[in-house]
Computed example of a mutant assay.
Amino acid sequence: MASTLISSKSNSKKSSTNNTATSDNSNETPITEEELKKKETPITINDVLRLRKATNGYLTETDDNVYKIDFVHFRIRDMKTNKILFEVERGSDDNELNEEVDPSAGRFVQYHFPSSFFKLKQIGALVDFTVGDREVKSFRMIERHYFRDQLIKSFDFDFGFCPPNTRNSIEHIYDMPEFDSKQTKEMIEFPNETKSDSFYFVDNQLIMHKKATYAFDLDRSH
Rank of each mutant, 00 (worst) to 15 (best):
K9T: 07
F216C: 01
Q205H: 11
N56C: 10
H209M: 05
F118E: 03
S23T: 12
N18W: 08
K39L: 04
L206S: 02
V136A: 04
D94G: 02
K119V: 06
T4D: 04
K153C: 06
Q150S: 12
N165T: 06
S221D: 12
I152V: 10
E178V: 12
G160V: 07
M187Q: 03
D64V: 06
F113A: 07
F199M: 04
K119R: 11
P30W: 07
F216T: 05
M187W: 02
K38T: 07
N18P: 02
D197F: 01
N27F: 13
N204Y: 08
F179I: 01
D64N: 14
E28A: 13
K13R: 11
K83E: 15
T166C: 10
N192C: 01
P114W: 06
S154A: 13
E143R: 11
G124V: 05
A54Y: 07
N165V: 00
M187D: 01
P177M: 04
F71W: 11
V136M: 05
V72N: 10
I173G: 00
K119A: 13
N82S: 14
F199Q: 01
T213Q: 13
T41G: 00
T4G: 04
S198K: 08
K153L: 09
S196W: 03
L120W: 03
V88L: 14
Y214R: 02
R52T: 12
L97Y: 15
S198T: 05
P103Q: 11
F117Y: 14
V101G: 08
N192L: 07
V72H: 06
